[in-house]
Nucleic acid binder design. Sequence first.
DNA 1: GCCAACGTTGGC
DNA 2: GCCAACGTTGGC
Length: 149
Amino acid sequence: MAYWLMKSEPDELSIKDLAKLGEARWDGVRNYQARNFIRAMAVDDAFFFYHSSCPEPGIAGIARITAAAYPDPTALDPQSHYFDAKASTEKNPWSAVDVAHVETFSKVLGLGYLKQQSVLAELPLVQKGSRLSVMPVTAEQWAAVLALR
DNA sequence: GCCAACGTTGGC
DNA sequence: GCCAACGTTGGC
């Protein structure tokens, strides 16, 4: 089992939204590096749910993968914000996974706080200029963040 | 709203 | 293949 971190704008999907829904499709990833990580995910992999572009950026909880990567339908939907005119049913370069809520942290672990943790120094999230929205997390990093809850 | 940093596009 | 211009991300 592998560990990951994925960013979501809480205006679009927050950890509370996911808790209410139980399960959701994680779509709209439009970056090849992030997509490759999406494709490497397996059912029951866990990930940190990160809130980005919001008043309190940080890790808000945990979710898990319930369906491995499949073609992202939003790329084919002209009504979607994530529509990609170059994508087709036969050739859709984008992938989505299904996810389920596991845990909402009692407090958001803020980005500034995470940056203070030396054990997380290698995590792209805390590195200057990194905009990667899906990234792998090592077992050591995973355990370290759990201990901060 | 600002802006640094990155990714993508497209001319050559 | 290079690289300038542009668009996007995301913290502040």
